[in-house]
Nucleic acid binder design. Structure first.
Lengths: 201, 201, 201, 201
DNA sequence: CGGTAAGCGAGACGGTACGTCGTGTCTTTCG
DNA sequence: CGAAAGACACGACGTACCGTCTCGCTTACCG
């Protein structure tokens, strides 16, 4: 069997490509994005792109995910109070979806996933799933702490939060807002928590 | 003001285009869809496409929405029992998202909306918004009947249901399921209903 | 057999079409000319064009020939002196080929003839041939008058005069000139005339 | 100044395009010729055509000129006898104009020149002018040898020969013939030669 | 430390699709 | 009822990208 020498890849070039991709996505959207454009904007040969990524959806996915991960550090906190932590996390997400810097990237990610089922699968495994897993894990800690109902469908809850935000982003009526997120939280908490008192709400 | 004579358009041609678009979307996905392909498959000149629709996203939107509306008659029922009606509606939606006939169309619609903000806006006004309005209206009837809490953010609830399903569709892990939808419903009902008893749960 | 009602064609419309064709040809050349353009410019339905002419080459031919015939009345004079008459005729032709009004029309005619052999044939019969026949007839009178050599190939002479001008027009180097025509005439006269004296040459 | 690396073009592709162009011109004429058709017939992308030629007229010109040059080697001979040489050259030209292989190409060249003044200009400089210059040069040698009259307008003579042939080709009445060319030669020789005796004519 | 194989910028290439324009036919509407 | 208006099927236009393929040049590893 041939000795597979580890391929040497220039880090600066790699970074330049991801940066160019994000810049172009912010300016013009996913369908306007082109491999030629990325290559030109990054000052890179097209072959270099195709050496490392098989498709536009793929570069987009990596570029956007890298950008979002850099932005979304500390996915969900753990202060001991599940209700506060959920609210903090939700507001972090809202901030991301609202930011003029990141919203186009999320839209692009959605377009890539809607377009290409293979890329969607990969995205799910490397991005969506870990993210959701973190939220579910935090909720599971809440079950152990007696704050969260044991029988609750934790994955469904995580889906509902993120899905609602995404839907609002896509419908493009500028309605992704902290208020709406809080409304959703108020709806979900009674079903989620063991001892829910409608105190100051 | 000049009397704008209404442009006369051939109905059969119009229908053939929408049919061809849906067929091609089912077979190959949004990004594989081409105006050339639609025209050829519908036995129509390309100019006829561009005469009536400005873009691929636009034809896609009309074709898919027409298909979904035809499929989704009676958006949400009104039997008097809000809990049953919500479950019925959710299951109808799940059936749509799961159907091999309609799922690709919804993915295409999502791709079109993620791509083109103008089309997203139009889609929202002609499709998403009326749909959600119907659900919200049904919930409002529930408030009048004393079944639903008056303070609940009804639009947030509708977003959560549809958004969760959409997110599952996009992540492409075959997980859009009635079970997950029921799990979500169990989570939401306590926050939504005035008298919620955790009977069989 | 169906009673063939004699088709009544409106003279004003007919004229408007020919005028529009000439105008457009002068402004933009043969390949830029379009049936749509002619119809619009003449304030006429496209069907009216196709009712009377089968093709663009055809309208062009009729329009241009009509224009040239109107301009070139009295093809070749007969003063009794063949040498003078030939020079007069040649200068008339040069004036036509040089005129910014007619040169584009001649170019268009050439394009139409070079393109479409059928139209070329028709053009020859209705335009080139009668024109040449007139010149040949004038030369034949010269033979009778003893001024022209009996054995000369009269048609070849006519071809040479017109062909040389046409070639200069096509090569587009602005060289269609009276001087060049006179040079040609000086070359041909010795072979054409019975008593040629190289007086002022 | 930046060293302009010469663009590398594939010779086989270039040749395939010119061949395809000539083939299509022979089969269907200039206006039927299409860039799409050339590309398809040559097994080449359309962009490759547009990379190297700006227009249909341009490819046509290069293809035809290359074909004619290949066919018309030794434009005009020099045996010392100008009269014989002219006749030889004329008969070579007639053969070209009569050949079913080359006649459509010449017609196409004429159409291209009549259509597009820019291309006509380029054609003149790269094809017509050098060709005529060769004939004029041969005639000038005749002047030096005392065979040709010093005052004769040599360019006019060349124009007359070629123009007459072209005119006959365009009028499409199948009349391009050696006889007609000889008739023309007999007309021109007295004006061209110093000592012209009507011996065997 | 010099050879060599890879990564790399550049860009020509065979293709597909774009969105527009023109052709020639057909239908609808109006004067 | 004849002509304008214009929708329509068709197909070419010239452009933009796609993904593959050489070209030379640079760069790092290995013998």
């Amino acid at each position: 069997m041939a000795q597979q020498r580890p391929r040497r890849r220039r880090a600066a070039t790699h970074q330049a490509i991801l940066d160019a991709t994000r810049t172009l996505l912010r300016n013009a959207g996913y369908s306007q994005l082109s491999m030629d454009g990325i290559a030109a904007h990054a000052g890179v040969g097209k072959q270099t792109l195709y050496r490392w990524w098989p498709s536009k959806a793929s570069v987009t996915a990596e570029a956007v995910v890298a950008g979002l991960i850099a932005a979304g550090r500390e996915i969900i906190p753990d202060t001991g109070d599940i209700s506060t932590d959920l609210r903090t996390w939700l507001h972090t997400c809202v901030a991301l979806f609202v930011s003029p810097e990141h919203a186009p990237l999320i839209r692009a990610l959605t377009a890539a996933a809607a377009d290409d089922r293979g890329e969607a699968q990969r995205l799910y495994q490397h991005f969506t799933e870990p993210h959701q897993a973190a939220v579910v894990a935090r909720l599971r800690l809440g079950i152990n702490a007696g704050q969260v109902r044991p029988g609750a469908d934790l994955a469904a809850a995580a889906d509902a939060f993120v899905g609602a935000l995404l839907l609002q982003l896509l419908t493009a009526n500028e309605s992704v807002s902290a208020e709406r997120a809080d409304g959703l939280l108020r709806l979900m908490l009674p079903g989620l928590l063991t001892d829910w008192a409608p105190h100051a709400q």
